[in-house]
Design a binder for these strands. Structure first.
Lengths: 217, 217
DNA sequence: GGCGAGCCGTACCGTACGTTACGGTTCGCC
DNA sequence: GGCGAACCGTAACGTACGGTACGGCTCGCC
């Protein structure tokens, strides 16, 4: 269940220069994937390898720092769940769905997930845990309060928020992430994503919407 | 969309000895992931490296052959869609869901997908395409006729079989595959899988079941 | 029985890359 | 202006591993 991720807020302890180096590493990671070399990172970041090793220990350390650095940039403001009605709940859910689809279809996310998946195979480090914690689990942590609020407002009906969330997750993501990770050229335009978000939300509401008579009374 | 996979039925052109070697490679792949070495494969298979190179060309060739070999073992008999009623359709869908969950949670599938994802990053070969073709796309190819038959029989209602399939896929798989690939220790017992299959099927029927009055008339 | 093909085991080669070492430069600080 | 810390660029080291070469063994075949 790996909920044990060192919750160090890296964005604080990093100098500007270090952030710049990690940004370079991140760009290289997106371009080259896991076979990026320390030399290439040093060259791209215009720094010496000695510095890389002093700051990040070794290659895995650099990779981990890069992933955490990207993760720290993604933090979004939680949606407030006040004055909830069916319309605003629907909008919220569509927002979540759309945001999530944009994330998992972004080059950065794909590259990071690829590296993390590769490393999860040879349990050297916990890159997988980091990605999971800042991806799927972070999403759940932000969405569940909305679901709970929807239930409180009598709009949703479910026994377990976790289960409801996972169904929503499935309806939104479907086969998109695995196909992208495996190299399928899936065109996700702004329009496609919007449509999918609406569809997933409607399906979720059909499954978990409260049946209090013709809704609205 | 990469539907272009050399559809060579490898299981025919391989000698018994070669299959044994690939089985050894497969076992090693599950244990070691992508950082398995040619020497290790040779040792495990009790063959010489020379033989590996003669048979499979290079490392990527061996990996590809291994993945295809595993894929060729998974081919299952298509479900026949005769005399369909709601009960038998439900059973079929539950079967598919349960089988799919078993596949994606198996050590073999996880290892293979990890390797394929890693290779998709550095577009050296089409391992990702092979895995996709024998996984998600093969599933669709087997399930769609069932869905179409369900529609013919007036049990299901959908405009596009592909869309319906993808929703079913999402309801079944949810976050399971990505979590497993990222190293999450997700315990999928026989009972859990059975329950999830039933739940996913019910949800799918709720979304796509034909509303011809109280069903059964 | 002799022969050649195919294969095993192992030694060997070349290289790429992680890691370290070091001389030279910048820059803050006294 | 002088000192030292931090850092750049590059060269050098060590090693792991992909790929090749080769000697010896087995076995089917003439």
């Amino acid at each position: 269940m790996l909920h044990i991720v060192p919750d160090i807020d890296t964005s604080e302890t990093l100098t500007e220069r270090q952030k710049a180096v990690l940004d370079a590493a991140l760009r290289l990671l997106v371009e080259e994937g896991d076979q990026l070399t320390m030399t290439a990172v040093a060259r791209r970041a215009s720094c010496s390898k000695e510095t890389l090793y002093k700051w990040f220990g070794d290659r895995d350390g650099l990779l981990t720092a890069t992933v955490q650095w990207q993760a720290s940039k993604v933090r979004v403001a939680p949606v407030d769940a006040k004055g909830l009605d069916l319309a605003s709940l629907t909008v919220s859910l569509e927002r979540f769905a759309s945001d999530w689809l944009k994330v998992i279809s972004s080059d950065t996310s794909i590259a990071l997930n690829r590296v993390a998946v590769g490393h999860a195979g040879s349990g050297k480090d916990n890159l997988g845990a980091v990605v999971l914690e800042n991806g799927r689990f972070a999403l759940a942590k932000r969405l569940k309060p909305v679901l709970e609020a929807g239930r409180q407002a009598g709009l949703l009906d479910f026994a377990d928020a976790e289960t409801a969330f996972r169904s929503f997750f499935g309806l939104v993501a479907r086969d998109v992430q695995i196909r992208l990770l495996l190299g399928d050229r899936l065109e996700l335009t702004e329009a496609t994503i919007g449509g999918d978000a609406v569809r997933a939300t409607q399906q979720f509401l059909a499954l978990f919407g409260a049946k209090t008579g013709p809704q609205g009374l």
